[in-house]
Design a protein around this nucleic acid. Structure first.
Length: 490
RNA sequence: GUGGACGUAGCUCAGCUGGUAGAGUCCCGGAUUGUGAUUCCGGUCGUCGUGGGUUCGAGUCCCAUCGUUCACCCCA
């Protein structure tokens, strides 16, 4: 019989248990910090009605959405479609244009499935808030850590299924700019605890950028958006590339204007005072610029007040973000020692979150950690190793007749909060140690004839490679101390 | 969706100008009766992605197809 190859589709992150534990620890840390800052948990279904997910976006996103159809609803033979087309043709009025008939038939022949997988957590949040508006308290502060799906071609560090860990604050009618400063404070707290090395939360403001472009004669919002996208690539592609593109025919900007734009977006602040000075040095400009400048100054100052060290956040005027729904503050976070990894956390302010679902005006600000990518890239860079097992202790089986004693011992350890596994199958002691070692279990406990005679238990530390005896009654206490030390040393 | 590269043991790869497959690793077993990870010895594993063509003969050349991967677009 031919075997079916056991494989997953490319672009998914499937881990071995010890790696999964490391991943899970990161998730725990993020959740703990989100909750510590007063955000409430929300989960939404992976599958949503397709029309709900696709209302606003269209185009680019639609290409990346996975449509879902239950097998029963599939018209695999096309029979149903043909039947309906025949009925449509038979029932059509004589004066109906061929064009309109063709359009209707096309819809029947190529129906869009009713359901789709979410491609981010922001659109489902918008739907969620619109749907439960009456039951929520505003400003609504929610965190959400779930998998999202994007039907793009797999690439280095890009996934088709990945975790996003979002926090958003949604206001009713209005939302203070102060929240724009709170999110970086949360992120600072998360990344500091994740211990992933020095990082910088970089900030910019779209109003400031648009205002500056406007002052250079780029007044059309659409074109401003295109320029935004282009300068966003500065760090990745280099100034020459951006210059060529902006002077080129797609944009047709004057070389003088382009040079000014390039000088503008190359600004990076080195301290809070430097950021203030830099912003002031831009000089007077259109209203948008003034507004953006005021917002940025307030946000930067408040981040400082939130206790984030100046070394961990900075002004970066090239940060723009590709998504068009951001209207004010935008964020991107990078690791200082691994710039090639790119942004590991980003987001921004949006003027009206749920305009396509409700008439209520719901401005918000949000930020998201792409955990699958972050974890994967940290691992590539050798910054996270495999974790230890969730099992603390393995009780070995020296003597089958003593099994009840082993079970009792394990029960005692568990009652003390120590995760314990008992070897139930027996076998050579060497194999039992090998099993513990490979499974990432740090401690093994041996209770054989010798120990029983002496009233002690042997504890072996698989990692250090040494072992010692403890009086039976002292075992729990000793292991607790050992485990505490092990945890403290990482 | 557009363009390029590659497809040989579970994994990483070698196989020169065509002559019926190899290394490392992993896994399994052993190295005296209660000790893993280190060391030594031994062993399993492949219709060389698939289909067709050229040839006496193809992993090696040609075509197609599928798959993977990188870049672009866009993004976490």
């Amino acid at each position: 019989m031919a075997l079916t190859p056991a494989r997953t589709m490319p672009g998914v992150l499937e881990l071995l248990p010890l790696d999964q534990i490391a991943f899970q620890r990161m998730l725990d840390t993020i959740r703990r910090n989100y909750e510590r800052f007063g955000f409430l948990p929300v989960e939404t279904p992976a599958i949503e009605f397709a029309d709900v997910l696709l209302t606003k976006t269209g185009g680019e996103t639609e290409r990346q959405v996975y449509f879902v159809q239950s097998t029963g609803a599939l018209d695999s033979t096309g029979e149903e479609a043909v039947r309906r087309m025949a009925a449509l043709a038979a029932g059509s009025k004589a004066d109906e244009s061929m064009e309109s008939l063709i359009q209707k038939m096309h819809k029947l022949a190529f129906p869009t499935p009713d359901l789709a997988l979410r491609f981010d957590l922001t659109v489902p949040l918008a739907r969620y808030v619109a749907e439960h508006e009456r039951d929520l308290s505003f400003p609504f502060r929610r965190y959400q850590m779930q998998r999202v799906y994007r039907g793009e071609r797999a690439q280095r560090g890009r996934f088709r299924e990945f975790y996003q860990c979002d926090i958003d604050v949604i206001g009713k009618d209005s939302l203070s700019i102060r929240y724009d400063a709170e999110l970086p404070a949360v992120i600072y707290s998360v990344f500091r605890e994740l211990a992933i090395g020095p990082f910088t939360i970089q900030l910019n403001n779209r109003k400031l950028m648009r205002g500056y472009f406007e002052s250079l004669g780029v007044a059309d919002p659409e074109q401003q958006m295109l320029v935004l996208r282009e300068v966003d690539k500065l760090d990745k592609r280099g100034a020459d590339h951006v210059r060529d593109t902006l002077v080129g025919e797609g944009f047709g900007l004057s070389p003088a204007a382009v040079e000014k734009i390039l000088a503008f977006v190359q600004v990076r602040s080195s301290s809070l005072q430097d950021a203030y000075d830099t912003l002031d040095a831009l000089g007077a400009g259109p209203e948008a610029l003034e507004q953006g400048r005021a917002e940025l100054k307030e946000v930067l100052g408040l981040i400082h007040a939130f206790g984030v060290p100046e070394t961990h956040y900075a002004l970066n005027l090239s940060i723009a973000r590709g998504l068009d729904y951001y209207t004010g503050t935008v964020y991107e976070t990078t690791l200082n020692e691994h710039p090639q990894i790119g942004s590991i956390c980003s987001g921004g302010r949006y003027e009206n979150l749920a305009g396509q679902y409700t008439k209520s005006h719901l401005p918000g600000v949000g930020i998201s950690i792409g955990l699958s990518r972050l974890y994967w890239q940290l691992r590539e860079a050798g910054l996270v190793g495999t974790a230890q097992s969730t099992v603390d202790v393995l009780v070995t089986q020296m003597d089958e007749s003593q099994l009840p004693a082993y079970l009792a011992l394990a029960g005692e350890l568990r009652a003390a909060g120590i995760a314990t596994e008992v070897v139930l199958e027996g076998g050579k002691l060497g194999k039992q140690f090998k099993y513990a070692d490979r499974a990432g279990i740090r401690f093994a406990v041996v209770l054989g004839e010798d120990e029983l005679a002496k009233g002690v238990v042997t504890v072996k530390d698989l990692r250090r490679g040494d072992q010692f005896e403890v009086v039976r009654a002292e075992l729990v206490k000793t292991l607790r101390v050992e485990l505490e030390q092990a945890a403290a040393m990482g």
